[in-house]
Every structure is written in structure tokens, then in C-alpha cells.
């Protein structure tokens, strides 16, 4: 899913949007369709995490709970409710949002590493609940054999299902883009850059963070639901912390605070896993780890972030895009002066 690279630079944005949509549409022709769907799902998941990490300044290490929780919920709705899959996916996303509400309430007061640890702890709790509640979740066997029929259409061919699942992903990405560009999104950015100042301006910082957290969870849930229907199962490792880690890695690879960068990160990681599965090489972790290190060292803004930075710095003498929001911001009197412009989008709106 290399969708709509809305580089905010005038007409280039439209071109990129069209190119991105085109890429999304032809993807299953280029690569094996189930893998293409994986990329689409992870791209939306990465955008959801980036909404928090890049635009709200909160590094969640527990988003597996929403991805996996929604996968289980979606599967259960189809298996036991006999509902068509679009209803199930929406149900799964709502479940993820509901789940995010108490978790968010308890964790948005924290930032930085504390926020990451608390979200991780909650996600692990959900993991253990799913592991133990075997009558409902199937334990480590997972929820298997989720059918994907819709109005009598047989979507068992992954090629066709890609196009059935894609609208959800696109809708999710559009929602993420709207959120970021809305006045609400601007407030999030200002909270990211200087929460004390945002508070002084009268914004209820925690409530904004909570809402961003819940929205992000709903988007992650949408992605998880499509993923579950696409594969026909919901498995325990979708809830495990490695899933949270993988999506954060995708965001970092693509570029924090770029929204679309996550799609590139997703494409790289998923393709790499797929490629290494049959490459006949034993050290899968070594390869992914080395690539991660290389990208972090060479492209400090991530791939998309670096590309955008180069484009912009060539086009205008403007100061570069505000660097990726550090996860460890200080609530009061941050040591570095906050970037002056309230928005990291110089050519926005």
C-alpha cells in the first residue's frame, strides 16, 4: 500500500496521490495477492501507530492489543454471528476503540518510556486473557477457519479478496489523513511539541491524547479485522508484543510523522519476510535487523521522511520539516526550544 503520498507540495501531492492509488490497485498483480493484502493491512496499522507516535508524541508499545483484539472480535462475529465480513470488520474496529478507552484513560497521563511500558503491560494482559480463555479464543491454536463470504459472493480467491479488503484500508488511511489535517490534528501536534503551552492555551491535553489513542486503536482494529478475514484466522501471536514491535519498526523505517512512510516500512518488512521464507537463508532476524540498523543510520528521518526532506529542501529554502517527535518529551520546560511553527506542514491547507 503505497497510497497517496500526499506530499504537501502543491500539485505534486495530487500526482503522488494518483500514483499511490494506482500502486495500491495494481499491487496484487505485482506480488502474490495474500502478501499484497498483508502489506495493505500493515500499512494502515503503521499509519494508526504513526498517528500517535508522529503526531501526538506517544510511543505506544501495546497496539498489538487492538490489532489482535479486533482480529479475534472480527472472527467471532463472523463465526458465531454469521455476519458478513464488512459488518464484522466494523465491529472489530469498534471493539478495539472500546478496549482502548480504559487503557487510554489510565495511560495518557504518562509520556515517553512510561507510556510505552504501561501500554505494553496492558497489551500483555490482553494476550494472557486470550491465551487462557480457550473456549472463546482457541488458545494457542487460534480462531481457525473464518469464512469470507459476502452476499453470496465467493471471495476465497485472495486476488479478489484483496479488492474487497482494500476499501477498508483506504478508508482508514483517509481517516488518518483527515485527522492529521484537521484542527484537532493541529492541536495534537502542538501537544506533541509543547504540552505545557498547549495546556496554557486552554486545551485539555489528556482528553486530546485519549481521543487520539482511541482513534488510533480503531484504525489499528480495522487493519487487524481485514487481516483476520484475509487469512481466515486470528492467532495468538497477533496479540503478542512482537506485533507491537514490528509495527513500530515499520513506522521508523518509513519515517515517523509522515503517515505514508509506514506503508513503505510495511512493504519492506512484509516483502522481506516473504522473500526470506524461501530464500534458503537461516538468519532471518539477522537480515531484518541489519536492514533496520542501516536505515536508521543512513535515513534518520526514515525512508519517506528523508525523501520528503530532500524534496522540500531542494524546492524551498524553508527550514526542514520538524524532526520526528521524540517519544521522550518533557511536559514542562523542554530542554530544547520547541519548534516555532505550530505545524510541521509548511505548505499545508
Amino acid at each position: 500500500m503505497i497510497l497517496s503520498r500526499l506530499a504537501r507540495s502543491g500539485r505534486g501531492g495530487i500526482v503522488l496521490l494518483v500514483l499511490g492509488l494506482l500502486a495500491a490497485l495494481v499491487l496484487p498483480w505485482l506480488i502474490y495477492p495474500p502478501v499484497a493484502l498483508d502489506i495493505a493491512c500493515w500499512a494502515l496499522f503503521a499509519a494508526a501507530v504513526d498517528l500517535l507516535l508522529g503526531f501526538t508524541g506517544l510511543l505506544s508499545f501495546g497496539h498489538a492489543a487492538f490489532w489482535g483484539g479486533s482480529a479475534y472480535c472480527t472472527g467471532l462475529i463472523v463465526l458465531h454471528g454469521g455476519m458478513p465480513f464488512p459488518v464484522a470488520i466494523i465491529g472489530g474496529a469498534l471493539f478495539a476503540a472500546l478496549l482502548a478507552l480504559p487503557i487510554g484513560l489510565l495511560s495518557v497521563r504518562l509520556t515517553g518510556i512510561y507510556f510505552a511500558m504501561v501500554t505494553l503491560a496492558f497489551a500483555q494482559m490482553i494476550y494472557f486473557v486470550a491465551n487462557q480463555w480457550r473456549d472463546v479464543t482457541g488458545g494457542e491454536n487460534g480462531l481457525q477457519g473464518i469464512p469470507r463470504e459476502f452476499l453470496g459472493l465467493d471471495l476465497s480467491d485472495p486476488f479478489f479478496f484483496y479488492y474487497a479488503g482494500l476499501p477498508f484500508v483506504l478508508a482508514g488511511l483517509f481517516a488518518a489523513w483527515r485527522i492529521v489535517r484537521s484542527p484537532f490534528g493541529r492541536v495534537l501536534v502542538s501537544i506533541r511539541d509543547n504540552p505545557a503551552r498547549a495546556r496554557a492555551l486552554g486545551y485539555p491535553v489528556e482528553r486530546y491524547r485519549l481521543l487520539a489513542f482511541v482513534l488510533s486503536a480503531a484504525l489499528a482494529g480495522t487493519a487487524g479485522g481485514v487481516f483476520a478475514i484475509g487469512h481466515g484466522f486470528a492467532a495468538l501471536d497477533g496479540l503478542y508484543w512482537t506485533t507491537s514491535g514490528q509495527v513500530v519498526m515499520m513506522v521508523i523505517l518509513g519515517g515517523i510523522g509522515t503517515l505514508w512512510g509506514g506503508a513503505i516500512g510495511a512493504a519492506i518488512v512484509v516483502q522481506l519476510q516473504d522473500f526470506l521464507a524461501t530464500a534458503g537463508f537461516e538468519g532471518v532476524g539477522i537480515v531484518t535487523g541489519s536492514i533496520f540498523i542501516v536505515i536508521v543510520l543512513l535515513f534518520r528521518r526514515g525512508i519517506w521522511g528523508t525523501a520528503r526532506h530532500l524534496l522540500i529542501s531542494r524546492r524551498q529554502a524553508d527550514p526542514p520539516v520538524s524532526p520526528a517527535a521524540g517519544a521522550a518529551e518533557e511536559p514542562v520546560e523542554s530542554p530544547e526550544p520547541a519548534p516555532a511553527p505550530a505545524s510541521p506542514h509548511p505548505a499545508g491547507d
Binding site: Y32, P34, H231, F233, D237, D274, L276
Partner: peptide
Amino acid sequence: VTGADHQNKPEIANSKAQELYDR
């Protein structure tokens, strides 16, 4: 005789199995 590494991930096993049978 061919082989594939599912890396203990059910989703990779799922995609790879389809690919092995189909392609």
C-alpha cells in the same frame, strides 16, 4: 523437493502454503 520457512508465524504459513500449492 522445496522448502519454506514459516518463521513460526501462522500468517506466513498461511500465505506460503497458498503460494506453494498455487505457484
